[in-house]
Amino acid sequence: MWERLIEEAPRFFGYYNLVFLGKAALATVALSALGCIIGIVLGSLVALLRLTTRLPLAPLRWIAALYTEIFRRVPFLVTLMLVFFAFQLSKVDLPMFWVAAVSVTLIASAFLAEIVRAGFESVHRNQWDAAAAMNFGLLDTVRYVVLPQAWRIILPPAFGFFVLFIKDTALASQIGVIELTFAGKVLNNKGFSAVLVFGTILVAYFLVSWPLSRLGKHLEQRLASPRHQRP
């Protein structure tokens, strides 16, 4: 086996393959980043909806709760298949990257909605009371009082979720998105040995994910320190 690896390696780590892998790694990060950025916006909206109290908004509240419950209990692969076939049947010709991005967004919104909600709930009840008594509406309360206090609670787990999802997007290879895992399959099909190919792919993921998760831990410690809690 070793002879084969040594023989293949120079060809495998050639210029074109490295560029191919680099682009694939970029797609992997972009997929998760895109889904999580849109996801935190939509997730905040969902979390906000769940905080409304007015009676006419009750159906929306209900839908928001159902949404977070459902999409956190369906595997990424199944959501991916549903989105894939839904686009196929609606004859919308969307590149596979975007099909996967929609799936990531759907799931990320649900998980991030819960993270945002937990952040909102971490702000003491008396802050909400004071705002309400001074005639702040829900949006003003969140904007001026709650978010400035909750963001440091929300950011670390949200970032952690983004890093976690970088690895989950490996499943997007199943519908043909050219990201890291798919690149591995392509190179394996070209005849490179599986040890070399998938070993390299694993290392590539590690090189992307490890620094980001370290950054996340650093972020968490920084934001959690009792001093410098100023906005």
Partner: peptide, 20 residues
């Protein structure tokens, strides 16, 4: 809303906004 324009309350725990 109209009522709260005319009443103000001070709480036992002060309830000052911690971020301001």
């Amino acid at each position: 809303r109209r009522l709260r324009d005319r009443l103000a309350i001070v709480f036992q725990q002060y309830n000052l906004f911690q971020n301001m």
